[in-house]
Amino acid sequence: MLEILNASLKVGHRSLLDNISFTIQPGEFVAVCGPNGAGKSSLIRLISGEIKPANGHVRWHGKDIAAWNLLHLARHRALLQQRCEVGFDYTAMEVILLGRHPHHQGATRNVDVRIAELALAEVEGRHLADQIYSTLSGGEQARVQMARVLAQIWEPSDSPKLLLLDEPTAALDPRQQHRILSVAKQWARKGDVAVVAIVHDLNLAAQYADRIALLREGKLQTIDTVHAVVTPEAVEACFDLPCVLLTHPDGGTPMVAARRNIN
């Protein structure tokens, strides 16, 4: 279980995150939405343990995330960053295999290569395997990085896992956006992975997430089920964008459409 308790983050006098509290269970997929500069990335960095909160706690199974053994954490928690440049001419396959480092810490084993191949297939990227990562398009790089984080936490384990995705869909075409989020949802469904993903497109998030957290100016506006959050009122309050409510014909997930802005 991931617990965020009264967590705050400050840079100088500017408050990036203000008194945030919520919990996420393994098996759950939580999407984080909010306007630019709301603190979404800071929240993910906080959860990953990369930065420490000024106040409050981030706990993973009752223990402060910073107190966990670095290697244990590396095998159970993976973070997809927004942009990830790779130095030197590593191939896509080699980049994915870097995700296996915490499991072997030395020589790559056959099982690591097998897992890396399966992870790449998961993002429909087998044809990218031997290409030089730095020559791939932004969307292809994002898919390779997705495969890399999946490979990092691939094996079943006694301990639950945490998958953190910072805008996994930002650079992707619509088909791949759905592909990545459906993979994230499947992984959560396996039962032992908690997924936290920053998604800009609220309608996309509504189709895959179990719960949606709305963040604005460093404050958690709401975190609730899709039906409770995706309402014209909540969206307008969070994004200052007048909306109407629609219903997706498949499964009846709520959608919002912005009102036309003609001045």
């Binding site: 990369e50 670095l70 095998r75 993976a78 790779v86 480092h101 810490q105």
Partner: peptide, 20 residues
Amino acid sequence: AGALNTLALGEVQAQLLGVS
């Protein structure tokens, strides 16, 4: 050598991959 490989992903990712 193995740990230095992970630095190609940047210091943040290397740390998240269990490298101090």
